[in-house]
């Protein structure tokens, strides 16, 4: 199914990656604004996070040259490498959700009518996703707080950077995922009560 309202940036930027759904006019305007705001916010965070890949490349090149040519490995490349990589995939999860990029088994799902698909997804988000991510947020916050209070540092390299900012990536990821889930639920509610014209692309 091709959606005429398929957003333009998707064609330009990510091609046929993922199976996002767009809202249906059945959704009242204020709620559609909420959806639009959340989606746009996720995209902006996604752009910012994606630039970390460039930083990661730069850090590694610096280390290889510094060690290989000058015989002087850096103190920080190791810690920065895993921190940047972890930040990329964790904070990128919400925008991946926004574009329907978290893979699913399409063997049966693709054959369901859009309303059934929407109903399955709504049940999934409300019963499993949001409660699970909420508890993840709480525990992740506790761990980050403990690291902050005790001044925990990385013990893996001589650089020993403070760890709490990186530990905070876990609760932040959960928070972003919950917010994005709100938008996903609203979009599916609109499909469920709508004309049945707008399902998965």
């Amino acid at each position: 199914m091709t959606d005429p309202q398929r957003p333009q940036y998707q064609d330009e930027l990510i091609g046929d990656f993922g199976t996002p759904i767009t809202g249906d006019p059945a959704l009242p305007v204020p709620l559609r604004r909420v959806v639009a705001a959340i989606d746009r916010g996720s995209e902006l965070i996604g752009y910012a996070v994606s630039v970390c890949i460039l930083f990661l490349t730069a850090v590694i090149i610096f280390e290889v040259i510094s060690r290989g040519v000058f015989g002087a490995p850096t103190m920080w490349a190791y810690d920065l490498s895993y921190m940047l990589y972890g930040t990329i995939f964790m904070l990128g999860a919400a925008v991946t959700l926004r574009f329907g990029g978290h893979i699913r088994t399409d063997i049966f799902f693709a054959k369901f009518p859009p309303r059934t698909q929407a109903a399955i997804d709504i049940a999934f988000y409300l019963l499993l996703f949001i409660p699970g991510m909420w508890l993840f947020l709480v525990v992740g916050y506790d761990k980050a707080l403990h690291a902050f209070v005790t001044g925990e540092r990385s013990g893996l390299s001589p650089w020993r950077p403070l760890l709490w900012p990186y530990r905070a990536v876990i609760p932040l990821t959960s928070l972003l995922l919950i917010v994005q889930a709100v938008s996903e639920i609203l979009k599916r509610v609109s499909v469920f009560y709508g004309s049945g014209q707008h399902g998965h692309e």
């Binding site: 930027l13 990510i14 990656f17 994606s50 630039v51 890949i53 990329i88 925008v95």
Partner: peptide
């Protein structure tokens, strides 16, 4: 485009 797509795929 390359950065954005790489981020999405890596995250997934």
């Amino acid at each position: 485009v390359s950065l954005f797509k790489s981020m999405l795929v890596s995250s997934m």
